[in-house]
Write a protein that binds this DNA or RNA. Sequence first.
DNA 1: TGCCCGCTAATTTTT
DNA 2: TTAGCGGGCA
Length: 722
Amino acid sequence: MDVSNILNELNSAQREVVAAAPNNMLVLAGAGSGKTRVLVHRIAWLLEAEHYSPYSIMAVTFTNKAAAEMRGRLEQLLGHAVQGMWVGTFHGLAHRLLRAHWQDAGLPEHFQILDSEDQQRLIRRVIKSLNIDDSQWSPKQAQWYINGKKDEGLRPDQIKTGEDPYARNMVRIYQAYEEACQLAGLVDFAELLLRAYELCRDNAELLAHYQQRFRYLLVDEFQDTNAIQYAWLCLLMHDHNHLMAVGDDDQSIYGWRGAKIENIHRLSHDLPNTKVYRLEQNYRSTGTILKAANALIQHNGERLGKDLWTEHGDGEPIAVYAAFNEIDEARFVVQQIKHFLEKGDRQRSDFAIVYRSNAQSRVLEEALMQMSIPYRVYGGLRFFERAEIKDSLAYLRLLVNRDDDAAFERIVNVPTRGIGQQTLNKLRAYNREHGVSLWRACCEMIAAQTFAARTQNALVAFLKLIDELTENSRALSLAEQMEYVITGSGLQAHFERDKSEKGRGRLENLEELVSAARQFTPEDQELPILAAFLAHAVLESGEGQAEEFTDYVQMMTLHAAKGLEFPIVFICGLEEKLFPHEMSRQDPVKLEEERRLCYVGITRAMEKLYCCYAERRSLHGRDEYHRPSRFLTELPAECINEIRMRSQVRRPLSARATSVKPQTISTDSHGLAIGQRVKHKSFGEGVVLSSEGQGAHARVQVHFAEHGSKWLVAAYANLETA
DNA sequence: TGCCCGCTAATTTTT
DNA sequence: TTAGCGGGCA
């Protein structure tokens, strides 16, 4: 086979990586340097030029999206489907291992995966059962603690608590939670990784098998690996196989959830003969944007070092807008977008508005709505996380595994069937005392006639219902089974009773669930289809909001923006205490992560970048005055263009920035300036927040102390300057 | 059992 | 400010 097409259209640095002799390699791939392309072409090269079997390759990513993209692009490049190769997320591959070796892993055959909500519920229950005051020991905190320890590879008995009462309590909760999971056959996300690691570590034969099988491991986003993922990869390494790690230490933004940026530093020491490559040519952004990004990130120490460059021209300067407050900021952003859209050469989806924290989206959304610009906010509840979907799936989980206590708790009284808290408490007490699942507790207590007749009947009916659903759905297809369970369980009727908009939405989602089941094609053919579907639902909880193809302005946090690119990007809220966030400003390590986050934000922009900050911002219901973010002053003055209101007298961003000619925006044809105090005869005193339009149609937004914000037509409002 | 009120806390999030 | 949660009440 002619392999030249694999190397065509690559630059020399990329080609060097793709065509390197099989060896251990660390590829430092800067933002927009064609990282995915290199990974995909490398795999193709291994298959076609080095004649590796697909069976001997494993490619690991962090998100399902990245895995899907890698596979898709590979198949496109090769022109055919690839069978037998392991491509997936750490969690997905760990799950696959555990399913294949459930006995060795000490799991029941039908173990189920807990998502974080399930996990938190279970932890809450565990804390209650330990009689620990959960006002002081919040389930959330315990969840954080437990996951943190698991990410470090630590079991309760390996944690040295000393006399620390906090740690002791947490370990107690961890221990009890682990027992509850084991009893119910439940595995949370962190547990998937830890179990898979322990499985490999403790089974020499099994490990040897996989070491020999996987001759080449490729890992994407290596800077995001946590301790246990790293340890697992190291276990799999052997004299005869190789690893290619691709990552960018400058884009490590997940330290707070256990990612160890050190892993990228350690790799060359831990793996023999690791060759380091750098991809620094950027195909995404203008020279100015890259210059700014490079300058910013240079304020971090401890870097592996990398400078992005491009063959593109400099492009436009970065616009820095000093807003009066967050409302003005939002209006500015939306107005800019509107201008571009009116010129007609841009689509809405060319624009991204990014911000540090989700709370910032509201004001921006309001401004977009006011201007009738369709937008889409990333994040939020995803399909398989919706309550009605999880209820339905909980029934199915119980069909597969009666001991699944999380599922049992979820639906034992949904829809209501007279099994209340009292009854549940008794079941829980029994379950704790006798070490049996809630289902078995239920069976045994019924046999012993523990309950009053009414409760007894309700419980018997519930058990019977589940048994019947199991029996009658055995021969059905996945979609039929789904449909049958949704109606048979009474969930359908339950949601039909809710006549509100919400209720209707829920019913639609249930229909959607059935059709998702109909379309489902499992990747792992080994597994019964229902088990595969349930795992799929948890591991890939689906898109946040669908309609990928519709033309929307994109809104998201900086974290969510990683890996994406947009022609025009607005970064909002560049203020001290917001970005860098107050919680990170004191700690130099966290501060550097904030800076990397800013670097990620800047490098999302292809053509034009806007940076905005507000001098005053309402935060937690309080007006706060913040200084512009230090990240702004770290950008080279020659890269930025400060946009300021004519009427405002303002300190320039930095001493250096004085050399830049401020561009003024005309505020008025009505003689009112943003920020000006005015008086209205019925609304009283207020402050001008923003304005739009010209002449007779000019409108101003005024915030009145007693009447809130109003839009007024300047010509009629008779505003007096106050 | 479900609704309402008051309290509290308040980055970032994929699996 | 607001969202989410727990407790109390009808």
